[in-house]
Design a protein around this nucleic acid. Structure first.
Length: 278
DNA sequence: CCCCAGGGTAGGG
DNA sequence: CCCTACCATGGG
């Protein structure tokens, strides 16, 4: 559970580190738009707005934030409506998940915008997180609406569709630039609609996403999990593949099916960043 | 110089 | 269905 305390222009979200850990949640390969500043705060852009926050002993301090804005946008963005305590209670039956939760329990599956998620994870294929972040940043600077001198919104489908292929060439995307061009073209001419996908049954949504060039099984699962909040989606990248072969040679337990994606996120972060992962 | 990264496609068996 | 070469690019 959590509560809110207004502090001038800022807002303190009182919540335990186990329930929401800014560093783990914002830097675990879901969003590519947050950076840790030298003063220890996180700065980023999401939902078309600049967000600045900081981990404090009592929870998370949101800068320049009203209760209204928090309730209408950020409570959902940080998935505060999902009962993670219940999920983690179920993980106690599993030794590995228990370790992953002990390592970083404050991860949450962020509710990101579907279009941004689709484009970001098209860029993510056969790529590493620092470079993905860089490419996404370049993309926003080049095509997104400026929100300040430093920060840019993620470009809209229209903004991206109006750019030429050579606009994308300078973004460090490698061979993935043509994937983006094809994807935004499909959206611009109405062949692909995010709002329709959000209403589809899971398997249908999966198939539809995979009609986009460059979207295979893994990217589709990421878009479903991070962009459409389908917690059943289970992306298997090189890290999770490693975790599955190391910890679950007999297969991942089926009992977590309805929220397998959340468990996947704990596993991913654990095996990718914990030095002592065994 | 090498290998790897939140993989996917195309082509051949 | 499977397997493999190839795809750009930068970090380590």
């Amino acid at each position: 559970m959590y509560s809110l305390i207004s502090q001038g222009n800022n807002l303190l979200l009182k919540i335990s580190l186990d329930a929401l850990d800014a560093s783990a949640a914002l830097d675990c390969g879901q969003s590519f738009r947050f950076r840790l500043e030298e003063d220890g705060s996180f700065f980023g852009v999401a939902l078309g707005r600049i967000l600045r926050l900081r981990q404090v002993p009592d929870g998370i301090l949101f800068y320049d934030m009203s209760e209204e804005e928090f309730h209408s946008s950020w409570a959902d963005y940080f998935d505060l409506k999902t009962d993670y305590e219940a999920l983690k209670e179920a993980y106690r039956a599993d030794e590995v998940l228990q370790r992953a939760v002990a390592y970083a329990g404050g991860i949450r599956v962020l509710c990101q915008e579907p279009f941004e998620t689709l484009i970001s994870f098209l860029i993510s294929q056969n790529n590493n997180i620092p470079r993905i972040k860089n490419s996404v940043e370049q993309l926003c600077r080049r095509l997104g609406t400026p929100l300040s001198e430093e920060y840019y919104a993620f470009p809209t489908p229209e903004q991206m569709a109006s750019a030429s292929l050579d606009t994308y060439a300078g973004l460090g995307l490698g061979y993935r630039d043509s994937y983006l061009v094809d994807c935004v073209q499909r959206i611009a001419d109405g062949r692909l609609r995010m709002d329709e996908i959000s209403r589809m049954e899971l398997e249908k949504a999966r198939e539809t996403l995979r009609t986009v060039k460059g979207v295979g099984p893994k990217v589709a699962e990421c878009v479903l999990l991070f962009g459409f909040h389908r917690l059943e989606a289970f992306p298997v990248d090189t890290w999770v593949k490693k975790a599955l072969s190391r910890y679950y040679p007999q297969g991942f337990p089926e009992q977590y099916g309805a929220s397998a994606g959340v468990a996947q996120q704990f596993l991913f972060h654990y095996i990718r960043t914990c030095k002592d992962a065994v």
